[in-house]
């Protein structure tokens, strides 16, 4: 159970709390709680969404206790090379394309990290972890309408962040790019 789900659980918690050591502690706590509560698991439900619910509650409890402030995303426990760097046929990519890819990954990471916590979690659950709307409702305990509203706002906020970072499509009035890009 742990080996199969450690990556998605850790990934979600890391992007929520933005502290690798704290994310690891919370991940351990989540798996321990899941182990204790295994008897209550409903096989009709997807296991991933069940364990995400436990991870979500664990993160919320932790944040309430510690009232974590905005923390820049440090180097995670182990960061794998991004999809750009992992390409086997690197000769297809021109050097500037590789650099641009890294820029996008960097700007995307920063944009996600800057999302409001409530939006960030829903955006990650929906578009990174692939949960359905109903599963997100079960994980977070929010009403369906609230989930959809927050997802809409989260997407808008993310879009604004990326536009401000200079990723607007051609033809759009591109905002001033961020420094250092």
């Amino acid at each position: 159970m742990v080996e199969k789900y450690e990556t998605p659980v850790y990934r979600l918690l890391l992007r929520l709390v933005r502290d690798p050591s704290r994310a690891e502690d919370l991940s351990q706590e989540a798996f321990i709680k899941a182990y204790r509560a295994l008897r209550s698991y409903d096989p009709n439900r997807r296991f991933l969404s069940w364990i995400f619910k436990i991870a979500h509650n664990t993160a919320i409890d932790s944040m309430r206790r510690k009232q974590l402030d905005t923390v820049a995303l440090e180097t995670p426990g182990e960061e794998l090379p991004g999809p750009i760097a992992r390409t086997e046929d690197a000769t297809v990519l021109a050097p500037d394309t590789v650099v641009q890819g890294r820029d996008l990954a960097r700007d995307l990471t920063a944009a996600v990290a800057e999302l409001d916590l409530h939006y960030r979690e829903l955006v990650l659950l929906r578009f990174q972890e692939g949960l359905s709307y109903q599963e997100i409702v079960e994980v977070t305990g929010l009403a369906m309408g609230t989930v959809k509203t927050r997802l809409h706002r989260g997407r808008k906020q993310l879009a604004d962040q990326l536009r401000m970072a200079g990723w607007a499509p051609a033809g759009e009035t591109a905002p001033k790019p961020s420094e250092g890009k």
Partner: peptide, 10 residues
């Protein structure tokens, strides 16, 4: 979002 850097625990 699939382009986000992949992460995993230590």
């Amino acid at each position: 979002l699939a382009l986000l850097p992949a992460v995993r625990p230590a």
